[in-house]
């Protein structure tokens, strides 16, 4: 197990290098980053000084080495807008985003898994049909639309929940529900089909032959097996979830990394954009690593070698 983890960790190194290259190239896409970083009316002297200070007169690979060295210690330079270190701006907002992501995942699992299990157990009944209809809807409707509808219905008409901001539990509900909706639908659908497959297996019959309670067979024996492929699907959704975070945080004025990213892009605050991209990419890699390790723990048939 230990060597397996080490090996998986080593395998992420090339991915991290790739992330660094892409982040670096972000500011080089339009040629000279001086044009991006300085106002259009800057003098030629100011531009030359800027190039000198930031090493932009050096060859590209020298610039990259310098960038990568700084990035690895979290230094993406100062925000053009706030003057503060770009990385510290991102890290300040990370807890808000983590809170939203955790609430989303909790909601998605709390509703998606039971819905999928019940649809499978009561296959073909009204329960199954309604769950499948809702999941179909949930996968078809984009989250920004849901977010706007949610604000109109629950915040503007019913006045049950605030329209945005962060601090109270009430403020967390709408953005988390918006983000979770697609995920609930997906998890429910995958759980249903995996459970249908597992419930046909011989070992379920063995459990029945032992006299195990049906509820334990369904929620423990069968679900423990069906959850393995569900976990894989969740892992594949992390990228989409991070994208959804950006949209949802903006709609609900949630003070997280996603909203910061949009603001930074509009303000052409490139150091902050780089820091956000780097942090999001690292989170993506880390979550996938965790999913892989969980997968190996949940399925004893996976060899650690």
């Amino acid at each position: 197990m230990g060597t397996y983890v080490t090996r998986r960790l080593i395998l992420t190194l090339p991915v991290l290098a790739g992330i660094l290259v892409i982040t670096f190239l972000l500011t080089r896409l339009s040629g000279d980053p001086t044009d991006l970083m300085l106002p259009p009316n800057a003098t030629d002297e100011a531009r030359a000084a800027f190039r000198m200070v930031n090493g932009l007169d050096q060859p590209l690979w020298t610039q990259f080495i310098r960038f990568a060295g700084n990035a690895l210690v979290g230094d993406f330079g100062a925000s053009l807008r706030f003057g503060q270190s770009a990385m510290s701006l991102v890290l300040e907002r990370l807890p808000a985003t983590a809170e939203l992501a955790a609430a989303t995942m909790a909601l998605a699992l709390l509703f998606g898994i039971p819905a999928g299990v019940m649809a499978a157990v009561w296959r073909g009944t009204a329960t199954d049909v309604s769950i499948r209809l809702v999941t179909l809807l949930g996968q078809a409707v984009p989250s920004f639309f849901l977010g706007v509808v949610g604000i109109i219905v629950f915040a503007v008409w019913l006045r049950w929940l605030p329209t945005g901001g962060r601090g109270s539990f009430g403020q967390l509900i709408l953005p988390a529900a918006t983000l979770a909706f697609n995920l609930v639908a997906l998890i429910a659908r995958v759980t249903r089909s995996c459970m249908l497959d597992v419930l046909k297996q011989d070992y379920v019959r063995t459990a029945r032959a032992k006299g195990v309670w049906e509820s334990k067979i369904i929620w423990f024996h069968a679900l423990r097996n069906a959850f393995i492929p569900v976990l894989t699907v969740i892992g594949l959704q992390v990228g989409l979830l991070l994208g959804g975070v950006v949209v949802t945080e903006t709609i609900f004025s949630w003070p997280g990394v996603g909203r910061l990213a949009i603001q930074a892009i509009y303000a052409r605050d490139f150091p902050v954009v780089q820091a956000v991209v780097f942090v999001f990419a690292t989170i993506f890699v880390a979550v996938n690593l965790i999913v892989d390790l969980l997968y190996a723990i949940l399925d004893p048939r996976i060899s650690y070698r």
Binding site: D202, T206, A209, G211, V212, L298
Partner: peptide, 22 residues
């Protein structure tokens, strides 16, 4: 359910798939 596995029990044809893999 109380009787199964206690007063009467069963062994199946497929040993490879009859035990829960996890």
């Amino acid at each position: 359910r109380e009787i199964r596995g206690r007063a009467v029990s069963m062994v199946f044809q497929e040993p490879m798939t009859s035990l829960n893999p996890v």
